[in-house]
C-alpha cells in the first residue's frame, strides 16, 4: 500500500540530512508505526508521502501511485494529519468538518459511518470554535477531518503528542477500529509504550531505520539478558553500577534501573550483584531478570549504534 525505496531528503542545500536512505513498505490494512525521538526524520517521511515534499533521492509509492509524478491522484486517496494542529481555529468543529468534506467533493453524511465513533465524542461541542478545544478534542477533530473523504491510507504524524494519557489510549482504540475497516494506517510517535499497539514498527534515529519488525519480534530479538535492579539510595546505585560494570549498560527506567548483561552468559548475575551491592552498603537489594520492552530495545540499538 505504501512503499519507500532508498528515500533520502536533505535540507539547507544538503548540509542537514533528515532522511537517509530509508526503505520500507506497509501492507494493506496494516497499522504501521514509525518510532523515534524528535528530529529523527519522521515528519519529513510523512511530508514526502503526503506529497508536500519532494525527496532528493529514491522513489516511493502510495496506493500504487508515485509520490512525485502522480501526486494529484494520491491527494484524493490519503488522509494526512500533520504533527501540528492545523485546522481553522476560527471555524467551529462542524464548519471545519464540512469544509474538508466539501473540498474533497463529498459530504459529512456520506462518510459519517467512518467517523461516527470519534465524532460522537466531540459532537456535544460542534458549535465551538476549533481554536478553543482541548488538546484531545483537537486531535479527534483532526482525525475526523483526515477521514471524512474516506481515504485508503491514513498518515498520522505524532497524533498523540501533547495529549493526556486517557485520550491517548482512546485514540489508539480508534485507530484499531479504523484498521478493522481496512484502512492502512502509518503513524509516528515518540512514545515507546504506543509502539506495542502497532502491527509492525520501524525504529528510526538520525534519519536511518534501525530495525523493522513486529513489536514482539523486536523484543524477542533483544540480544542479551536484561535485569531490573532496585535498592535504597538509587542515585548512588546508578553511579556504582556504571563505575563497576562499565561494559554493561545501565539506565534508569521508571523506579528501577535496567541493566543490560552483555557478555555475561552462563553467569549467575543476580547473586553476584546482590553480594557486591551488599558489600557496598546498599539495603533492600532486588535483582530480577525481566523481558525487554520496545524502549529497552531502542536504547540498546542506540548504544550499539553509537559505539
Amino acid at each position: 500500500m505504501v512503499s519507500l525505496k532508498n528515500i533520502t531528503k536533505t535540507y539547507n542545500h544538503g548540509t542537514v540530512k533528515a532522511v537517509d536512505d530509508v526503505s520500507f513498505s506497509v501492507e494493506k490494512g496494516e497499522l504501521f508505526g514509525l518510532i523515534g525521538p524528535d528530529g529523527a526524520g519522521k515528519s519529513s517521511i510523512f511530508r514526502m508521502l503526503a506529497t508536500l515534499l519532494i525527496p532528493d533521492k529514491g522513489s516511493a509509492t502510495v496506493a500504487g501511485h508515485d509520490i512525485v509524478n502522480d501526486y494529484k491522484l494520491i491527494r484524493s486517496k490519503v488522509g494526512y494529519m500533520p504533527g501540528r494542529f492545523s485546522l481553522y481555529p476560527d471555524l467551529s468543529i462542524e464548519e471545519n468538518l464540512d469544509f474538508f468534506a466539501t473540498v474533497f467533493n463529498t459530504t459529512v453524511k456520506e462518510n459519517y459511518h467512518l467517523i461516527e465513533d470519534i465524532y460522537v465524542q466531540i459532537a456535544p461541542f460542534h458549535k465551538r470554535r476549533a481554536g478553543r478545544l482541548s488538546g484531545g478534542m483537537k486531535q479527534k477533530l483532526a482525525l475526523c477531518c483526515a477521514l471524512i473523504h474516506k481515504p485508503t491510507v491514513l498518515f498520522l504524524d505524532e497524533p498523540t503528542t501533547g495529549v493526556d494519557p486517557v485520550s491517548r489510549r482512546e485514540f489508539w482504540e480508534m485507530l484499531k477500529r479504523l484498521r478493522q475497516q481496512g484502512i492502512t494506517i502509518l503513524v509516528s510517535t515518540p512514545y515507546m509504550d504506543e509502539a506495542s499497539l502497532c502491527d509492525r514498527i520501524a525504529l528510526i534515529q538520525h534519519g536511518r531505520i534501525l530495525s523493522i519488525d513486529t513489536p514482539q519480534g523486536i523484543a524477542a530479538a533483544y540480544p542479551n539478558s536484561l535485569y531490573a535492579v532496585k535498592a535504597t539510595d538509587m542515585p548512588r546505585l546508578i553511579h556504582v553500577l556504571s563505575t563497576y560494570y562499565p561494559h554493561m549498560h545501565s539506565y534508569l527506567f521508571g523506579e528501577v534501573i535496567h541493566l543490560d548483561a552483555r557478555g555475561m552468559g552462563g553467569y549467575n548475575l543476580p547473586d553476584e550483584l546482590t553480594q557486591f551491592l551488599t558489600a557496598e552498603g546498599f539495603a533492600d537489594i532486588e535483582v530480577k531478570p525481566i523481558a525487554p520492552t520496545i524502549e529497552d530495545c531502542f536504547i540498546n540499538m542506540l548504544v550499539r549504534h553509537d559505539t
Binding site: 503526503a50 506529497t51 508536500l52 494529484k72 491527494r75 484524493s76 490519503v78 494526512y80 500533520p82 501540528r84 494542529f85 492545523s86 485546522l87 481553522y88 481555529p89 474538508f100 473540498v103 474533497f104 467533493n105 477531518c145
Partner: peptide, 13 residues
C-alpha cells in the same frame, strides 16, 4: 503560520 495551508495542500483543491 498556523499550518492550515498544509492541510489545504494535501486536498485536491
Amino acid at each position: 503560520e498556523i499550518g492550515t495551508i498544509e492541510q489545504i495542500n494535501v486536498t485536491p483543491i
